[in-house]
Amino acid sequence: MMIEVFKTNVQEVEQSQMIVEKLLEHFPNSAINFDLEDCDKILRIHSLSISNRKIIAVLNANGFHCEVL
């Protein structure tokens, strides 16, 4: 199991829920969550295989910034 952590600019719970749904399309059977209380609006993904490039592309395609921490 791999864990990857990203800094994002996602602000709203509704936005985070939409992003999680889109990421689960690409990474089924993954545990994906946001910590919007953190100043870096942390996105955590627990999965057997993780593509940082794909995750960043999904967020960028939806108008959000995302970078690996």
Rank of each mutant, 00 (worst) to 15 (best):
V58G: 06
I50Q: 05
A31D: 11
I32P: 03
I3P: 00
I45W: 03
E14W: 10
N62P: 01
A57Y: 04
F64P: 02
L36H: 06
H65E: 15
A31G: 00
P28V: 09
L36Q: 09
L48A: 06
A31P: 00
I32T: 04
H26K: 15
Q15D: 12
I19D: 04
Q15E: 15
V68T: 11
L23C: 05
N29M: 11
L43Q: 09
T8I: 06
E67D: 11
L23I: 06
L43M: 06
S51E: 08
V13P: 01
A31F: 02
F27Y: 11
P28A: 09
V58M: 07
E67V: 03
S16C: 02
I56E: 13
I32Y: 08
N52F: 01
I19P: 04
V5W: 01
A61Y: 02
R53A: 14
A31I: 10
G63D: 08
I56P: 07
I3L: 14
S49I: 08
V20Y: 02
F64Y: 11
S47K: 07
L23E: 05
F6M: 11
F27S: 05
C39I: 14
N33A: 11
S47N: 10
Q11R: 11
F6L: 10
I42F: 00
R53H: 13
E21P: 00
N60F: 07
I56D: 09
K22C: 05
M2E: 15
M18E: 12
I45G: 01
N29G: 01
F6Q: 08
H26M: 11
K54W: 00
N60R: 15
V20H: 04
T8S: 04
K41Q: 11
L43T: 05
V5H: 01
E14I: 13
L48N: 12
V5N: 10
V10C: 03
E12R: 15
I19Q: 03
E21S: 12
V68K: 14
Q15S: 13
R53C: 06
S49G: 06
I3W: 03
L48T: 01
Q17V: 04
V68Q: 11
F34S: 07
N62C: 03
K7W: 00
I50G: 05
K7M: 05
E67L: 07
R53L: 14
E25P: 00
E37F: 06
G63E: 09
Q15G: 12
N60Q: 14
A57E: 15
L24S: 09
V13T: 11
M2K: 15
D38N: 13
F27H: 10
F34M: 09
F64Q: 05
R44T: 14
H46R: 11
F34P: 11
I19A: 03
E21W: 04
S30P: 07
E67A: 07
L69R: 08
S47G: 10
S16D: 01
S16V: 01
M1L: 12
L48W: 00
H46K: 14
A31E: 10
I56V: 14
N29D: 14
L69K: 10
Q11I: 10
S49N: 12
L59Y: 01
G63W: 09
N9D: 15
E21N: 15
V13S: 09
L59A: 06
S16W: 01
C66G: 07
E25S: 02
S30L: 10
A31Y: 09
Q11L: 12
N52S: 12
I55E: 04
S51L: 02
V58E: 06
I19G: 04
